[in-house]
Design a protein around this nucleic acid. Structure first.
Lengths: 168, 168
DNA sequence: TTGTCTGCAAACACTTTGCACTTTT
DNA sequence: AAAAGTGCAAAGTGTTTGCAGACAA
């Protein structure tokens, strides 16, 4: 409902809230709007940081008001949210990390190999290069992922504050 | 030995063969030059395609002349080769994929989400952008990874030839 | 000889699946 | 009522580890 008031997220305006968008997606696929799915979408959009399945499960555990959801359900729902275009998934250090996609502008990441922080940045040039390269190779590009890894400013100073994992 | 004759790989000239380079690395670390490590380096450099641990293990199994190496040894050696700068590792569709790094020019990839082919390309602009973005964020960049995903020309024509996995 | 390496089997982390029961439609 | 979803426990995948015997230095 209320398609009238726009929902603002990040810097982009969209007319449906993530939850509405997800409901739409589910209906279009003949899937059901269950309280688990509803609750998971809500928790996911509670804040904007990157997260992995485990963190989301913890968040849900520590927010019992919203209800309960098992590990498999969380994984299943995350997959659906990616399909719905609500979340973007990337794999870092051996596990999947998710971030908001719907209504959030295109961007790439700086990844600190020491503290595993992700810093977002955007560059129009990247998309331009992507299209140029793709057409050179008769490739139909659907997206891209650029991760610049290195040391963030904090870790450049505080060397050896924490053990380096260096998993990319 | 024979540092005299250059070893040519791809388009770059280097003075040590991968095997020599690896020996050097091992010695510097007080590690030993075993017949397994020797054999693995050799098999890895037999051809230039991207490969994963399983493919390498198969290759070794089907090339008994070279000797034998267990799964753990292959994994351990691949890790060492990455540390030695001989191989570059990336994670695609849930498993690690390796490619030659030593003596091979910097490049990025087009990844076909249908047939999982990797196509290499290089763009100087990317490195320029990388450095610009890094310095904007007081970040010390150590490297980057750009993967443009989509459909290769083959898969654009032969739609549905094989099931789409779409794992990025 | 000494300390590293190997191979085996078992352990691992993360994610997915089979299935009986519950819930939405 | 019918179909889809959930949670549990168990199975997967790809990769790593502990340890006793094998081997390079």
């Amino acid at each position: 409902m209320s398609v009238a008031d726009d929902f603002s997220l990040g810097t982009v305006k969209v007319s449906l809230s993530p939850r509405e968008r997800f409901d739409e997606f589910l209906q279009a696929r003949g899937k059901r709007i269950t309280k688990q799915r509803r609750m998971i979408v809500e928790q996911v959009y509670r804040r904007h940081e990157h997260f992995d399945a485990e963190q989301l499960i913890d968040l849900i555990r520590n927010t019992p008001e919203g209800g309960r959801a098992s590990r498999p359900t969380v994984y299943r729902t995350l997959t659906e949210m990616v399909e719905a275009g609500l979340l973007r998934k990337m794999v870092l250090g051996g596990r999947a990390v998710y971030e908001h996609d719907y209504g959030y502008p295109q961007h790439d990441h700086l990844y600190c190999t020491s503290c595993h922080t992700l810093i977002e940045f955007s560059s129009d040039e990247i998309v331009r290069i992507r299209e140029a390269v793709a057409s050179q190779h008769q490739f139909r590009s659907q997206g891209h992922r650029l991760i610049i890894s290195g040391l963030c400013s904090d870790c450049r100073s505080n060397r050896s504050r924490s053990r380096h994992h260096d998993r990319v």
